[in-house]
Structures are given as C-alpha cells and as structure tokens.
Amino acid sequence: MSGTRAARLAPVVEMAARAEREAARMLGRCQGQVTQAEMKLGELERYRGDYQQQWIEEGKRGVSGQWLMNYQRFLSQLESAIGQQAQSVKWHRDNLDKARAAWQQRHARLEGLRKLVQRYLDEARAIEDKREQKLLDELVQRMPGRGEG
C-alpha cells in the first residue's frame, strides 16, 4: 500500500522539481542582471573619477568660465546617471532577493515531497520485509522435524 502512495506522488514530485528548476533559472537570470547593473554603476563611477581628475589637471592650468560651466553641467548629468543606475542596482537586488526566496520555498517543498516519498517507500519495504519474515517463519514451522518433541 505504501509503495502505491509513493507512486501516486511521483507526478507531484515531478511538478515540484520543474517548479524548482524554473525558480533556479529565474534566480540565475536575476543574479546576472544584478551583476550587469553593478558593473554599469562601477563604470559610471570610474568615469566620474576620471572626469574629476581631468578637472584637477585642467584647473592647474587655468580654465575658462565656459569650460567650467560645461564641466559642471556634464558632472551634474553624470551624477544623475549614477543615481539612476544606483536605483537600478537596488531594484535588481530586490528582484534577486524575491527570486532567491521563491527558489528556497520551491526547493524546500521539493525536498519535503522527496522525504515523504522516501518514508512511504521505507514503510512499504518494512511491510514487505515483515510479510517475507512471516512466510519464512511459517515455512520453518512446517519443515519435517520441527514442532515435534
């Protein structure tokens, strides 16, 4: 009986395994998006650092008012882009956290189902072992020379 319970759960386990694999794929995609967003943010911050270094170098030689205005305008745009990219990184990290939680939930469900199936199989094996032992005991009792005293 327990063996058939395990067999009946096989499609449920397969569905849970598919859901867990899909959640793992989504987790991987989200991790890739976080990595890309962080790389882009790093590039923007490095570019800002380079641009600020250029300001220091140019400032030593003296700059025109027009150059200073252009520098400040561009730096402002760059700061805005960095802020937007930082928000993008946060958004992607939040998505990653949600994807991780979804995968953990599906993984835990799959493991729970697998343990239940194993328990059913163990129960079926124990019942079968008892049945075989009972048959062996009956055969031994029926053997000639046994039970006569």
Rank of each mutant, 00 (worst) to 15 (best):
A17L: 07
L27S: 02
Q36P: 02
M15E: 15
Q118N: 14
C30K: 13
R106G: 00
T35M: 14
M69K: 06
G83H: 00
A101D: 06
E79S: 06
D122Y: 06
L135M: 04
Q72R: 09
S76T: 05
V117D: 01
E38Q: 13
L96Q: 08
A102T: 03
L9N: 08
Q33A: 15
G83Q: 00
D97I: 09
L121W: 14
A10R: 08
A19Y: 00
S2V: 01
W55H: 08
E45L: 12
G112P: 06
L27T: 06
Q72H: 05
E132Y: 14
M26K: 12
K90S: 10
G65S: 07
H92V: 08
D137E: 06
M1H: 11
R119A: 11
N95G: 03
S88N: 03
R48V: 02
Q54C: 08
R125I: 13
D129P: 07
R93A: 04
E138N: 13
N70I: 06
S80R: 01
G28L: 06
E45D: 09
R106F: 00
D94A: 07
R109A: 04
A6Y: 13
M26F: 02
W67T: 05
A108V: 05
R29S: 01
L116W: 10
R21E: 02
G49T: 02
A16M: 01
M39K: 11
R125Q: 15
S2K: 06
V89A: 09
H107M: 06
G65Q: 09
R48C: 01
L9R: 12
A10I: 02
V117W: 04
T4Q: 13
R125D: 15
A126S: 10
A81F: 01
D94K: 04
K134C: 09
Q33G: 15
E111K: 00
L121V: 13
S88F: 01
I82M: 01
S2N: 12
M1Q: 14
K60H: 15
S88I: 00
Q53M: 09
W103S: 02
A108K: 07
Q118H: 14
H107F: 07
D97V: 07
R21W: 03
R25Q: 01
Q52S: 05
S76Q: 06
M15A: 15
R119N: 12
E43M: 09
G65E: 12
A37Y: 03
D137T: 11
Q33R: 15
P144M: 08
L110D: 05
P144E: 10
A102W: 01
Y120K: 10
R48P: 03
G32E: 10
R109D: 03
Y71T: 01
G83K: 00
M15V: 11
R93K: 10
K90V: 08
R61H: 11
R93P: 04
L9S: 07
K130E: 05
M143H: 13
E123G: 12
G32Y: 07
V13D: 06
R114G: 03
Y71E: 02
E38H: 04
L44R: 05
G83P: 00
K130D: 07
Q54W: 09
M143L: 11
A6I: 12
E132N: 12
D129L: 08
G145C: 14
G59Q: 11
D50T: 05
R131M: 08
Q33D: 15
M69A: 07
W67R: 12
G62H: 10
Q72Y: 08
E123V: 09
K98V: 04
K115D: 05
A10G: 08
M1K: 12
